[in-house]
Design a protein around this nucleic acid. Structure first.
Lengths: 235, 235
DNA sequence: TTTTATAATTTAATAGTTTTTACAATTTGA
DNA sequence: TCAAATTGTAAAAACTATTAAATTATAAAA
């Protein structure tokens, strides 16, 4: 059943969004949904939904639609968060690190925070959502004794190369990098997602400017155009 | 010079990344760069760089490359951060709100924090990077007396519809939404960027799982494959 | 129970978009 | 002056999204 053709990353990047919408539907006790209705809720085309979901095998039923619970679980499996919780640590307990540590959604999506590390003595010992902040000196031992799949890097710019090297040497294979520097490492089994919040803000600025430019023009010519004013980006 | 053909959003979303790399080059006193060298630094193809930049007119020079400073300024203009600083406020001074308020990169990229709002009395009056946290009751007056282009929404899930409605009614045209709910508003001149950090984490999880699956398979068959292990996403 | 109209998926084909290739044209620097 | 370097851009290739036809399930009516 599962189609063996390679799934494009474009499809993959949409899956978490489906997963969120399906979680919402579950919460509302909606048990079945058609691609058409989901498309209206999500603001994408029904055909895209069907095409996307069909990459992984036919979860739907003709004449019926999709069973919300089944679909939710299947997407969870594809994303690897069913039968396989990811354990992650946060390195750098500054503002962003603490904000992420407090983010309860990660747990709902299959990611469990198991440790927080910093070098600031004032922070060591403090607990966030029942996870203690430890000193970086304890990192080696912690990683040896605990399953750690992902390290979230929220350390200052100047420290990122050193910390990344350290984490890589300990065998952690997933890096979620929030530092302002794009992170590259010469190991091809380490997966890195670089997050640049300011990039998203700049895109917002651009769209805002374009929208206002268009508006001014329209006030002159008085024509109407289709505007697509909201967008979702990953991270 | 400026090409009037519509620029695709795919190109726009790459511009902030170019902008960052060019800022790095400036910092290193590198005055000229070829698409080839930039492509090696950024890990994308040189042709894509040339194609992207050419959407906005020929900034480069055959046989020479691009002047870093000129290119940096031109991209800044396109993104609207030259001659037009964006002013933003943060609504919700919890962990994420404070983390963003402390993010000094926004200012470097043309975005100036002018106010922070919350309803928690314990936070009111506190200053972050010289910007005072004000009570939500003061929002109306503040927006009337100050230029506010963008509101960053870092409020809890349950408050987001109300806050978004409020902000829209005050005439703020750009919303950068960090709440777990996709925000949609029935005004087509309001631009929204929804940020879902957990989506990015889930993609990391997927890529990690696939990488390890592939690795196991490879250990059996002993073939080699091209791996592209790092990725950048907006927001 | 059977029939029929409707709803909805699956999937192949088409259309559209984005990226890469390839090369003419231009500039640099010896 | 000439070889090397490099852009700009048209065309090809690759990728992504939409359309539409075939198929299957549901639900209401006979």
């Amino acid at each position: 059943m599962a189609n063996s053709k390679k799934i494009s990353i474009a499809v993959i990047r949409r899956l978490p969004r489906y997963y969120r919408y399906l979680a919402d539907l579950l919460r509302m006790d909606i048990t079945r949904i058609s691609s058409k209705e989901l498309s209206q809720r999500m603001g994408i085309t029904a055909s895209q939904i069907r095409q996307d979901l069909n990459c992984f095998g036919g979860f739907g039923q003709q004449g019926y639609g999709y069973n919300v619970e089944v679909l939710y679980k299947e997407i969870g499996k594809i994303l690897g968060v069913v039968n396989n919780r990811f354990h992650f640590i946060i390195i750098g307990a500054g503002n962003m690190g603490q904000a992420l540590a407090n983010y309860e959604n990660f747990e709902k999506r299959g990611f469990q925070l198991v440790g927080i590390f910093d070098i600031n003595p004032q922070l060591i010992g403090k607990k966030i959502r029942n996870v203690e902040i430890m000193h970086m000196d304890q990192l080696d031992e912690f990683v040896k004794n605990n399953k750690v799949d992902i390290a979230v890097l929220t350390v200052p710019y100047k420290n990122i190369p050193e910390v990344a090297e350290k984490v890589a040497s300990l065998g952690i294979k997933g890096l979620w990098n929030f530092s302002a520097m794009d992170l590259k490492l010469p190991y091809d089994d380490i997966i890195i997602e670089n997050v640049h919040l300011s990039d998203s803000l700049m895109v917002l600025g651009y769209r805002l400017k374009e929208s206002q430019k268009k508006k001014k023009k329209k006030e002159g010519t008085n024509d109407s155009g289709n505007t697509n004013n909201e967008s979702n980006t990953n991270n």
